[in-house]
């Protein structure tokens, strides 16, 4: 067909990724070194692949040079997403309290200063100071100084939150698991560091994409995406073309629609390597999520 879109011999299916409204926050973690900033960010974003089981999706957005952080130390920005506002605040308090407040030399700053919708996360964390905490207002921003055994932890009183988008995605249909992984790794590499986007799954990649609900177990919120599972090709309604033996998925959460679009625009072409037959995306017919990322439109 003349309308087909093919990149490096890989067919880009004429379909769209269906994504959902989320609430998002950006946290800037600084530390005495880039190593400790990353340690804190890595632990904070652990077990945060999917709201289905983790209640939160989180990931490292990018490293921030020392010159660009509020305290002049190396920093990491982390994006955190939940389906609702109350959940976002609760998850941030839990995670910052348990993983960053505990981590040597770290400080916590807001990464969405323009947001007028604020969460009193630092205000909640301050009480760890057991009444010995003190605040400082610098440039109209209140920070809490929490005395700790190391010395003092610094946490900004409020963090901004915004309406965000969760669940942008695309799938790489390949001739082997090795090829699918290689394609996904290339896409992740291309999308790493793009502002406003995280890839919340391990290494940015999902091997076990899911469908909504279950055909057999009523209590399950999600179960294996059998239409894209190669071992089930002959016993389910498959969406896999001939020659496809493995599929990997990349899920994207973003602070806005355009951020995810920008990431997919560079990620999808990077995944178009020999052995990949098709790039497609997951959707529910457009009936569940209001955000639709049309692959061909993004790549146009």
């Amino acid at each position: 067909m003349s309308d087909d879109l093919v990149i490096n011999g890989v067919e880009i299916e004429d379909t769209f990724a269906e994504a959902f409204p989320m609430r998002g926050a950006r946290v800037i973690i600084t530390a005495v070194s880039a190593h400790w900033a990353r340690v804190a960010a890595t632990v904070m974003t652990g077990f945060a692949t999917s709201v289905i089981g983790c209640k939160v999706e989180a990931g490292i957005e990018r490293e921030i040079p020392a010159d660009d952080t509020p305290d002049g130390r190396p920093g990491i920005s982390v994006l955190v997403f939940t389906p609702d506002s109350a959940g976002l605040q609760a998850r941030l308090i839990e995670r910052l309290g348990q993983t960053v407040l505990t981590c040597p030399t770290t400080a916590v700053f807001d990464g969405l200063p323009a947001s007028t919708d604020r969460m009193p996360v630092g205000k909640a964390l301050r009480i760890f100071g057991d009444g010995f905490q003190a605040s400082k207002v610098i440039g109209g921003i209140r920070y809490w100084r929490v005395p700790v055994m190391e010395g003092e932890a610094l946490v900004q009183e409020t963090l901004g939150k915004v309406s965000a988008v969760g669940g942008g995605n695309f799938l790489m249909l390949a001739d082997s698991a090795a090829t699918a992984l290689k394609a996904a790794e290339a896409a992740v590499k291309a999308m790493t560091g793009i502002a406003g986007v995280i890839l919340p799954f391990p290494g940015g990649i999902v091997r076990s994409g899911s469908k909504v609900g279950s055909k057999r177990y009523k209590s399950l919120l999600a179960s294996t995406n059998d239409a894209f599972s190669p071992t089930l090709r002959e016993i389910t309604a498959t969406d896999l073309p001939e020659g496809v033996n493995s599929v990997m998925e990349i899920v994207l959460d973003g602070l806005d629609f355009d951020s995810i679009s920008r990431a997919m625009k560079v990620g999808i072409p990077a995944a178009c390597i020999p052995g990949v037959a098709r790039i497609t995306a997951g959707n529910y017919g457009g009936k569940l999520g209001p955000h639709h990322f049309y692959l061909r439109k993004i790549l146009a």
């Binding site: 509020p70 305290d71 002049g72 130390r73 400080a107 400082k136 610098i138 440039g139 920070y143 100084r145 010395g151 003092e152 932890a153 610094l154």
Partner: peptide, 18 residues
């Protein structure tokens, strides 16, 4: 004690920048 108050660099950078 003798230590590194974490708000001091925030304050000094603010004063320099703004």
């Amino acid at each position: 004690c003798t230590y590194h108050p974490p708000y001091i660099p925030v304050l000094l950078r603010y004063l320099q920048r703004e």
